[in-house]
Design a protein around this nucleic acid. Sequence first.
DNA 1: ATCTTTTCTAAACGTTCGTTTAGTTATTGT
DNA 2: ACAATAACTAAACGAACGTTTAGAAAAGAT
Lengths: 187, 187
Amino acid sequence: MARTKQYNEAEVLEKAMRLFWKNGYESTSMQMLEKEMGINKFSIYSSFGNKHSLFLESLKHYKSSVNSVFNKLKNGTKGIEDIKQFFYDSVSSNFKDNNLKGCFVTNTYNEFSETEDDMVKEQMEAFMTNLKQIIIEKLKIDTSKNEETILRQANYLLLAKHGLAAASRVNTKQEIEDYIEMTFKNL
Amino acid sequence: MARTKQYNEAEVLEKAMRLFWKNGYESTSMQMLEKEMGINKFSIYSSFGNKHSLFLESLKHYKSSVNSVFNKLKNGTKGIEDIKQFFYDSVSSNFKDNNLKGCFVTNTYNEFSETEDDMVKEQMEAFMTNLKQIIIEKLKIDTSKNEETILRQANYLLLAKHGLAAASRVNTKQEIEDYIEMTFKNL
DNA sequence: ATCTTTTCTAAACGTTCGTTTAGTTATTGT
DNA sequence: ACAATAACTAAACGAACGTTTAGAAAAGAT
Protein backbone atom coordinates (compact mmCIF):
# COMPACT_ATOMS: atom_id res chain seq x y z
CA MET A 1 0.00 0.00 0.00
CA ALA A 2 0.95 3.64 0.28
CA ARG A 3 0.78 6.84 2.24
CA THR A 4 -2.17 7.38 4.59
CA LYS A 5 -4.40 10.46 4.83
CA GLN A 6 -3.16 13.05 7.29
CA TYR A 7 -6.63 14.32 8.01
CA ASN A 8 -9.93 12.88 9.15
CA GLU A 9 -12.68 13.27 6.56
CA ALA A 10 -15.44 13.59 9.16
CA GLU A 11 -13.51 16.32 10.95
CA VAL A 12 -12.83 18.44 7.89
CA LEU A 13 -16.43 17.98 6.70
CA GLU A 14 -17.64 19.37 10.00
CA LYS A 15 -15.44 22.42 9.45
CA ALA A 16 -16.71 22.85 5.89
CA MET A 17 -20.28 22.63 7.11
CA ARG A 18 -19.75 25.38 9.66
CA LEU A 19 -18.27 27.65 7.03
CA PHE A 20 -21.13 27.02 4.60
CA TRP A 21 -23.55 27.49 7.46
CA LYS A 22 -22.12 30.87 8.29
CA ASN A 23 -21.64 32.24 4.78
CA GLY A 24 -23.85 30.26 2.45
CA TYR A 25 -22.79 28.52 -0.73
CA GLU A 26 -21.88 31.33 -3.10
CA SER A 27 -20.01 33.43 -0.57
CA THR A 28 -17.84 30.52 0.51
CA SER A 29 -14.86 30.14 -1.81
CA MET A 30 -12.61 27.13 -2.22
CA GLN A 31 -9.80 29.27 -0.86
CA MET A 32 -11.75 29.89 2.34
CA LEU A 33 -12.60 26.22 2.57
CA GLU A 34 -8.94 25.31 2.13
CA LYS A 35 -7.99 27.55 5.02
CA GLU A 36 -10.85 26.53 7.30
CA MET A 37 -10.61 22.81 6.62
CA GLY A 38 -6.84 22.95 6.98
CA ILE A 39 -6.15 20.83 3.92
CA ASN A 40 -5.14 21.47 0.33
CA LYS A 41 -7.57 21.97 -2.54
CA PHE A 42 -6.43 18.70 -4.04
CA SER A 43 -7.35 16.88 -0.86
CA ILE A 44 -10.80 18.47 -0.83
CA TYR A 45 -11.40 17.40 -4.41
CA SER A 46 -10.11 13.88 -3.88
CA SER A 47 -12.25 13.43 -0.78
CA PHE A 48 -15.44 15.21 -1.79
CA GLY A 49 -15.47 15.54 -5.59
CA ASN A 50 -16.18 19.22 -6.03
CA LYS A 51 -17.55 22.26 -4.24
CA HIS A 52 -21.15 21.38 -4.95
CA SER A 53 -20.95 17.82 -3.68
CA LEU A 54 -19.02 19.05 -0.65
CA PHE A 55 -21.93 21.35 0.03
CA LEU A 56 -24.42 18.50 -0.31
CA GLU A 57 -22.34 16.43 2.08
CA SER A 58 -22.31 19.35 4.49
CA LEU A 59 -26.10 19.53 4.33
CA LYS A 60 -26.36 15.81 5.03
CA HIS A 61 -23.95 16.18 7.89
CA TYR A 62 -26.02 19.03 9.28
CA LYS A 63 -29.16 16.97 9.11
CA SER A 64 -27.58 14.13 11.02
CA SER A 65 -26.19 16.58 13.56
CA VAL A 66 -29.65 17.93 14.34
CA ASN A 67 -31.07 14.44 14.39
CA SER A 68 -31.04 14.31 18.17
CA VAL A 69 -33.17 17.44 18.35
CA PHE A 70 -35.53 15.91 15.84
CA ASN A 71 -35.77 12.67 17.75
CA LYS A 72 -36.45 14.50 20.97
CA LEU A 73 -39.43 16.10 19.25
CA LYS A 74 -40.52 12.84 17.68
CA ASN A 75 -40.39 10.87 20.90
CA GLY A 76 -42.05 13.53 23.02
CA THR A 77 -45.48 12.88 24.49
CA LYS A 78 -46.56 16.39 25.43
CA GLY A 79 -47.87 17.58 22.05
CA ILE A 80 -47.56 21.30 21.52
CA GLU A 81 -45.21 21.63 24.47
CA ASP A 82 -42.75 19.39 22.60
CA ILE A 83 -42.95 21.58 19.51
CA LYS A 84 -42.25 24.64 21.58
CA GLN A 85 -39.22 22.95 23.11
CA PHE A 86 -38.12 22.02 19.60
CA PHE A 87 -38.22 25.71 18.66
CA TYR A 88 -36.01 26.52 21.62
CA ASP A 89 -33.64 23.71 20.76
CA SER A 90 -33.46 24.83 17.16
CA VAL A 91 -32.12 28.28 17.95
CA SER A 92 -29.88 27.27 20.82
CA SER A 93 -26.86 26.75 18.56
CA ASN A 94 -26.96 30.46 17.75
CA PHE A 95 -26.33 31.36 21.35
CA LYS A 96 -23.67 28.76 21.90
CA ASP A 97 -21.58 29.56 18.84
CA ASN A 98 -21.49 32.93 17.15
CA ASN A 99 -20.37 31.37 13.89
CA LEU A 100 -23.53 29.35 13.41
CA LYS A 101 -26.17 31.59 11.96
CA GLY A 102 -29.81 30.53 11.81
CA CYS A 103 -30.76 27.13 10.50
CA PHE A 104 -28.45 25.79 7.82
CA VAL A 105 -31.35 24.22 5.92
CA THR A 106 -33.46 27.38 5.99
CA ASN A 107 -30.51 29.52 4.96
CA THR A 108 -29.96 27.20 2.03
CA TYR A 109 -33.65 27.27 1.23
CA ASN A 110 -33.49 31.03 0.96
CA GLU A 111 -30.28 31.14 -1.02
CA PHE A 112 -31.45 28.50 -3.49
CA SER A 113 -35.12 29.39 -3.74
CA GLU A 114 -34.61 30.98 -7.16
CA THR A 115 -32.13 28.54 -8.65
CA GLU A 116 -32.84 25.19 -10.22
CA ASP A 117 -30.59 22.93 -8.25
CA ASP A 118 -32.49 19.65 -8.05
CA MET A 119 -30.15 18.00 -5.59
CA VAL A 120 -30.36 20.84 -3.10
CA LYS A 121 -34.11 21.24 -3.54
CA GLU A 122 -34.64 17.56 -2.90
CA GLN A 123 -32.78 17.73 0.38
CA MET A 124 -34.65 20.86 1.43
CA GLU A 125 -38.06 19.44 0.70
CA ALA A 126 -37.31 16.14 2.37
CA PHE A 127 -36.35 18.05 5.48
CA MET A 128 -39.38 20.31 5.48
CA THR A 129 -41.89 17.59 4.63
CA ASN A 130 -40.52 15.47 7.40
CA LEU A 131 -40.79 18.30 9.92
CA LYS A 132 -44.32 19.12 8.85
CA GLN A 133 -45.42 15.53 9.29
CA ILE A 134 -43.99 15.35 12.80
CA ILE A 135 -45.65 18.62 13.77
CA ILE A 136 -49.00 17.39 12.49
CA GLU A 137 -48.64 14.26 14.59
CA LYS A 138 -47.88 16.31 17.68
CA LEU A 139 -50.88 18.55 17.11
CA LYS A 140 -53.13 15.51 16.70
CA ILE A 141 -52.48 14.57 20.30
CA ASP A 142 -55.06 17.19 21.17
CA THR A 143 -58.12 15.30 19.91
CA SER A 144 -60.42 18.28 20.30
CA LYS A 145 -58.99 19.89 17.14
CA ASN A 146 -60.42 19.05 13.74
CA GLU A 147 -58.37 18.19 10.67
CA GLU A 148 -58.58 21.66 9.17
CA THR A 149 -57.43 23.40 12.33
CA ILE A 150 -54.49 21.04 12.62
CA LEU A 151 -53.34 21.70 9.06
CA ARG A 152 -53.66 25.42 9.53
CA GLN A 153 -51.73 25.39 12.76
CA ALA A 154 -49.05 23.18 11.26
CA ASN A 155 -48.57 25.63 8.39
CA TYR A 156 -48.46 28.48 10.85
CA LEU A 157 -45.78 26.76 12.88
CA LEU A 158 -43.70 25.95 9.82
CA LEU A 159 -43.78 29.57 8.72
CA ALA A 160 -42.99 30.67 12.25
CA LYS A 161 -40.05 28.27 12.28
CA HIS A 162 -38.93 29.69 8.95
CA GLY A 163 -39.12 33.22 10.29
CA LEU A 164 -37.46 32.22 13.52
CA ALA A 165 -34.53 30.76 11.63
CA ALA A 166 -34.16 33.93 9.59
CA ALA A 167 -34.53 36.21 12.57
CA SER A 168 -32.17 34.23 14.78
CA ARG A 169 -29.37 35.41 12.50
CA VAL A 170 -29.77 38.96 13.70
CA ASN A 171 -32.00 39.16 16.77
CA THR A 172 -31.08 38.84 20.42
CA LYS A 173 -31.76 35.85 22.62
CA GLN A 174 -34.42 37.74 24.56
CA GLU A 175 -36.25 38.78 21.40
CA ILE A 176 -36.12 35.25 20.07
CA GLU A 177 -37.49 33.79 23.29
CA ASP A 178 -40.27 36.34 23.50
CA TYR A 179 -41.16 35.52 19.93
CA ILE A 180 -41.39 31.80 20.64
CA GLU A 181 -43.57 32.37 23.68
CA MET A 182 -46.00 34.56 21.77
CA THR A 183 -46.09 32.19 18.84
CA PHE A 184 -47.44 29.42 21.04
CA LYS A 185 -49.73 31.58 23.08
CA ASN A 186 -52.88 30.86 21.10
CA LEU A 187 -52.52 27.25 19.98
CA MET B 1 -24.16 70.28 -26.97
CA ALA B 2 -24.06 66.66 -28.01
CA ARG B 3 -25.84 63.37 -28.22
CA THR B 4 -28.66 62.65 -25.77
CA LYS B 5 -29.19 59.50 -23.70
CA GLN B 6 -31.29 56.89 -25.42
CA TYR B 7 -32.62 55.52 -22.16
CA ASN B 8 -34.41 56.84 -19.11
CA GLU B 9 -32.37 56.45 -15.93
CA ALA B 10 -35.43 55.98 -13.71
CA GLU B 11 -36.75 53.25 -16.00
CA VAL B 12 -33.54 51.23 -16.14
CA LEU B 13 -33.07 51.64 -12.38
CA GLU B 14 -36.51 50.12 -11.85
CA LYS B 15 -35.47 47.15 -13.96
CA ALA B 16 -32.20 46.78 -12.08
CA MET B 17 -34.07 46.85 -8.77
CA ARG B 18 -36.38 44.06 -9.86
CA LEU B 19 -33.46 41.89 -10.86
CA PHE B 20 -31.63 42.51 -7.58
CA TRP B 21 -34.88 41.91 -5.73
CA LYS B 22 -35.32 38.54 -7.40
CA ASN B 23 -31.75 37.26 -7.24
CA GLY B 24 -29.93 39.24 -4.57
CA TYR B 25 -26.66 41.08 -4.99
CA GLU B 26 -24.08 38.36 -5.51
CA SER B 27 -26.15 36.25 -7.86
CA THR B 28 -26.88 39.18 -10.13
CA SER B 29 -24.05 39.72 -12.61
CA MET B 30 -23.32 42.79 -14.67
CA GLN B 31 -24.07 40.71 -17.74
CA MET B 32 -27.57 39.96 -16.44
CA LEU B 33 -28.06 43.61 -15.57
CA GLU B 34 -26.96 44.63 -19.05
CA LYS B 35 -29.57 42.36 -20.57
CA GLU B 36 -32.38 43.23 -18.18
CA MET B 37 -31.77 46.97 -18.20
CA GLY B 38 -31.41 46.92 -21.97
CA ILE B 39 -28.33 49.12 -22.01
CA ASN B 40 -24.60 48.59 -22.35
CA LYS B 41 -22.23 48.10 -19.44
CA PHE B 42 -20.63 51.41 -20.20
CA SER B 43 -23.97 53.15 -19.85
CA ILE B 44 -24.60 51.47 -16.52
CA TYR B 45 -21.23 52.60 -15.23
CA SER B 46 -21.60 56.13 -16.51
CA SER B 47 -25.06 56.45 -14.97
CA PHE B 48 -24.62 54.60 -11.68
CA GLY B 49 -20.90 54.37 -10.96
CA ASN B 50 -20.48 50.69 -10.25
CA LYS B 51 -22.42 47.58 -9.32
CA HIS B 52 -22.41 48.37 -5.62
CA SER B 53 -23.74 51.91 -5.99
CA LEU B 54 -26.32 50.67 -8.48
CA PHE B 55 -27.45 48.25 -5.80
CA LEU B 56 -27.68 51.03 -3.23
CA GLU B 57 -29.69 53.12 -5.67
CA SER B 58 -31.98 50.13 -6.21
CA LEU B 59 -32.51 49.85 -2.48
CA LYS B 60 -33.36 53.53 -2.25
CA HIS B 61 -35.72 53.16 -5.17
CA TYR B 62 -37.39 50.22 -3.46
CA LYS B 63 -37.88 52.19 -0.29
CA SER B 64 -39.54 55.03 -2.14
CA SER B 65 -41.71 52.55 -4.04
CA VAL B 66 -43.07 51.06 -0.80
CA ASN B 67 -43.49 54.50 0.67
CA SER B 68 -47.20 54.55 -0.05
CA VAL B 69 -47.68 51.33 1.92
CA PHE B 70 -45.71 52.86 4.75
CA ASN B 71 -47.73 56.04 4.71
CA LYS B 72 -50.95 54.09 4.74
CA LEU B 73 -49.78 52.44 7.94
CA LYS B 74 -48.54 55.69 9.40
CA ASN B 75 -51.75 57.57 8.73
CA GLY B 76 -54.07 54.81 9.89
CA THR B 77 -56.15 55.28 13.01
CA LYS B 78 -57.17 51.74 13.80
CA GLY B 79 -54.07 50.56 15.66
CA ILE B 80 -53.37 46.87 15.36
CA GLU B 81 -55.80 46.56 12.48
CA ASP B 82 -53.59 48.94 10.48
CA ILE B 83 -50.53 46.84 11.19
CA LYS B 84 -52.33 43.74 10.01
CA GLN B 85 -53.32 45.49 6.80
CA PHE B 86 -49.70 46.55 6.41
CA PHE B 87 -48.68 42.89 6.58
CA TYR B 88 -51.15 42.06 3.83
CA ASP B 89 -49.96 44.99 1.74
CA SER B 90 -46.33 43.97 2.23
CA VAL B 91 -46.75 40.55 0.66
CA SER B 92 -49.19 41.56 -2.07
CA SER B 93 -46.42 42.23 -4.58
CA ASN B 94 -45.53 38.55 -4.44
CA PHE B 95 -48.93 37.57 -5.75
CA LYS B 96 -49.06 40.26 -8.42
CA ASP B 97 -45.63 39.60 -9.91
CA ASN B 98 -43.84 36.29 -9.78
CA ASN B 99 -40.49 37.96 -10.20
CA LEU B 100 -40.67 39.88 -6.95
CA LYS B 101 -39.65 37.60 -4.15
CA GLY B 102 -40.22 38.53 -0.53
CA CYS B 103 -39.21 41.93 0.76
CA PHE B 104 -36.19 43.42 -0.96
CA VAL B 105 -34.92 44.94 2.27
CA THR B 106 -35.29 41.71 4.24
CA ASN B 107 -33.66 39.70 1.48
CA THR B 108 -30.76 42.11 1.56
CA TYR B 109 -30.67 41.94 5.33
CA ASN B 110 -30.26 38.18 5.12
CA GLU B 111 -27.69 38.24 2.35
CA PHE B 112 -25.56 40.91 4.03
CA SER B 113 -25.99 39.91 7.66
CA GLU B 114 -22.47 38.45 7.77
CA THR B 115 -20.63 41.00 5.67
CA GLU B 116 -19.32 44.39 6.75
CA ASP B 117 -20.90 46.65 4.21
CA ASP B 118 -21.56 49.86 6.13
CA MET B 119 -23.58 51.51 3.40
CA VAL B 120 -25.98 48.60 3.07
CA LYS B 121 -26.24 48.09 6.83
CA GLU B 122 -27.07 51.75 7.33
CA GLN B 123 -29.96 51.53 4.88
CA MET B 124 -31.24 48.31 6.45
CA GLU B 125 -31.21 49.64 9.96
CA ALA B 126 -32.82 52.91 9.01
CA PHE B 127 -35.63 50.96 7.43
CA MET B 128 -36.12 48.58 10.35
CA THR B 129 -35.83 51.24 13.06
CA ASN B 130 -38.38 53.33 11.25
CA LEU B 131 -40.81 50.44 10.95
CA LYS B 132 -40.40 49.52 14.61
CA GLN B 133 -41.14 53.06 15.71
CA ILE B 134 -44.33 53.18 13.66
CA ILE B 135 -45.49 49.83 15.00
CA ILE B 136 -44.90 50.97 18.57
CA GLU B 137 -47.00 54.05 17.91
CA LYS B 138 -49.84 51.96 16.52
CA LEU B 139 -49.75 49.63 19.51
CA LYS B 140 -49.87 52.58 21.89
CA ILE B 141 -53.33 53.46 20.61
CA ASP B 142 -54.57 50.70 22.89
CA THR B 143 -53.97 52.53 26.20
CA SER B 144 -54.66 49.46 28.30
CA LYS B 145 -51.24 47.98 27.44
CA ASN B 146 -48.22 48.88 29.50
CA GLU B 147 -44.82 49.87 28.08
CA GLU B 148 -43.28 46.44 28.47
CA THR B 149 -46.13 44.69 26.70
CA ILE B 150 -45.94 47.13 23.83
CA LEU B 151 -42.21 46.61 23.36
CA ARG B 152 -42.60 42.85 23.47
CA GLN B 153 -45.42 42.88 20.97
CA ALA B 154 -43.52 45.23 18.68
CA ASN B 155 -40.54 42.87 18.67
CA TYR B 156 -42.86 39.97 18.05
CA LEU B 157 -44.39 41.72 15.05
CA LEU B 158 -41.02 42.68 13.63
CA LEU B 159 -39.86 39.09 13.81
CA ALA B 160 -43.12 37.92 12.32
CA LYS B 161 -42.67 40.43 9.50
CA HIS B 162 -39.15 39.14 9.00
CA GLY B 163 -40.41 35.57 8.82
CA LEU B 164 -43.28 36.55 6.61
CA ALA B 165 -40.91 38.15 4.13
CA ALA B 166 -38.74 35.05 4.08
CA ALA B 167 -41.67 32.69 3.80
CA SER B 168 -43.44 34.69 1.12
CA ARG B 169 -40.64 33.67 -1.22
CA VAL B 170 -41.78 30.08 -1.14
CA ASN B 171 -45.20 29.69 0.46
CA THR B 172 -48.62 29.96 -1.14
CA LYS B 173 -51.00 32.87 -0.80
CA GLN B 174 -53.34 30.83 1.39
CA GLU B 175 -50.56 29.80 3.75
CA ILE B 176 -49.34 33.38 3.98
CA GLU B 177 -52.79 34.70 4.77
CA ASP B 178 -53.42 32.06 7.40
CA TYR B 179 -50.10 32.95 8.95
CA ILE B 180 -50.97 36.63 9.14
CA GLU B 181 -54.33 35.89 10.74
CA MET B 182 -52.84 33.64 13.39
CA THR B 183 -50.02 36.07 14.09
CA PHE B 184 -52.48 38.76 15.10
CA LYS B 185 -54.60 36.38 17.07
CA ASN B 186 -51.77 36.22 19.60
CA LEU B 187 -51.88 39.90 20.45
C1' DA C 1 -22.43 71.65 -43.20
C1' DT C 2 -19.12 71.26 -39.81
C1' DC C 3 -17.32 71.01 -35.34
C1' DT C 4 -17.77 69.68 -30.71
C1' DT C 5 -19.30 66.88 -27.23
C1' DT C 6 -21.35 62.91 -25.32
C1' DT C 7 -23.33 58.35 -25.88
C1' DC C 8 -22.72 53.99 -27.49
C1' DT C 9 -20.36 49.53 -29.05
C1' DA C 10 -17.21 46.10 -28.34
C1' DA C 11 -13.05 44.46 -27.00
C1' DA C 12 -9.77 43.91 -23.35
C1' DC C 13 -8.34 44.68 -18.63
C1' DG C 14 -6.75 42.40 -14.13
C1' DT C 15 -8.87 39.28 -10.48
C1' DT C 16 -10.90 35.72 -8.68
C1' DC C 17 -13.56 31.75 -9.24
C1' DG C 18 -13.74 26.40 -9.30
C1' DT C 19 -11.00 22.85 -11.08
C1' DT C 20 -7.03 20.11 -12.90
C1' DT C 21 -2.40 18.67 -13.54
C1' DA C 22 2.46 17.66 -12.92
C1' DG C 23 5.88 16.70 -9.73
C1' DT C 24 7.38 15.72 -4.89
C1' DT C 25 6.96 13.50 -0.45
C1' DA C 26 5.76 10.05 2.69
C1' DT C 27 4.04 5.60 4.12
C1' DT C 28 3.13 0.78 3.70
C1' DG C 29 3.95 -4.21 2.21
C1' DT C 30 7.38 -7.18 0.75
C1' DA D 1 16.02 -1.53 2.04
C1' DC D 2 13.37 -0.93 -1.71
C1' DA D 3 9.71 -0.58 -4.81
C1' DA D 4 4.90 0.61 -5.28
C1' DT D 5 1.25 3.50 -4.44
C1' DA D 6 -1.41 7.12 -2.70
C1' DA D 7 -1.40 11.81 -0.50
C1' DC D 8 0.60 15.89 -0.67
C1' DT D 9 2.27 20.80 -2.60
C1' DA D 10 2.05 24.29 -5.71
C1' DA D 11 1.45 26.01 -10.01
C1' DA D 12 -1.54 26.67 -13.88
C1' DC D 13 -5.93 26.05 -16.23
C1' DG D 14 -10.15 28.19 -18.68
C1' DA D 15 -14.21 30.73 -17.51
C1' DA D 16 -16.61 34.38 -15.45
C1' DC D 17 -16.52 38.23 -12.61
C1' DG D 18 -16.59 43.63 -12.21
C1' DT D 19 -14.44 47.30 -14.49
C1' DT D 20 -12.01 50.21 -18.00
C1' DT D 21 -10.70 51.83 -22.39
C1' DA D 22 -10.35 53.09 -27.28
C1' DG D 23 -12.83 54.05 -31.29
C1' DA D 24 -17.29 54.64 -33.89
C1' DA D 25 -21.75 56.82 -34.05
C1' DA D 26 -24.98 60.38 -33.28
C1' DA D 27 -27.07 64.72 -31.93
C1' DG D 28 -27.05 69.69 -30.79
C1' DA D 29 -24.78 74.45 -31.58
C1' DT D 30 -22.68 77.57 -34.58
